[in-house]
Amino acid sequence: MQIFHYQFIHNALFASVLLAVVVGFIGTYIVARRLVFLSGGITHASFGGIGLGWYLGISPILGAAIFAVLSALGFEAITRRRTLREDSAIGLLWALGMAMGVFFVFLTPGYAPNLMSYLFGNILTISHTDITLLLALVVAVGLFFALFYRPILFVAFDSRYAMSQRPTGAMLIDYVLKILVALSIVFSIRAVGIILLISLLTAPANIANLLTRRFLPMVAIAALTALLALLIGLALSYGLNVPSGAAVVLVLVVLYVLTRVAVGMHRVAKCRKQ
């Protein structure tokens, strides 16, 4: 148990717990609301911010946060005005973000050593700043859901109806959630990376959805699943010296298949009994 003496392991464990909470709430929200593709678009758009941040010499995560929030709000405006098909808009921004990221990284003089860590992430190298940002995000997400759980659920379920009952309130809830989704994406990049992030957000909620069809239980099960996958992924990453993001995603897929099989077998057994 030598490894628990290392500070970076403490950081990684604490970050895993925080990430699991974010994945529980935000993952369940984007899965239930069918925003997975949009979230993928925001994730990749944020790479443009990382590149620009690098080029300008400001914090890449700050650049990513600005890009992610702007693209999330931009999507919202585009869908409301129906100026462009929503999935086309997502596809365009997806590639634009990646292109800008690569463009600015190559413009920046010198070598960009951390590029891989943004694309694939590494929870073992997560810094104090990253953890502080994650902690602030967890507090914000937790507080928002605690205060507005029912309205959030109502707007997510049928935003048209919610808008017809309380137009301003429903719209505000929508916008705040889009911002929280964008920030959740950005603050998770360091741990799992841009390319693999979307599966961390979607797989746990889908595993949870195999076991329950209610929102709050889904949040709880998704968070626990994410924590389990992150811890196993962390162990694999440390033991085999592979990137943690890839390990976590593989663990999640295995967990999904196992849950699916277990639920199927349970159903068959139940039918036989009757």
Binding site: R33, D158, M218
Partner: peptide
């Protein structure tokens, strides 16, 4: 969508 009947009515 993961929502119960009672929650739908409350909405």
């Amino acid at each position: 969508f993961p929502i119960t009947v009672l929650e739908v009515v409350l909405s």
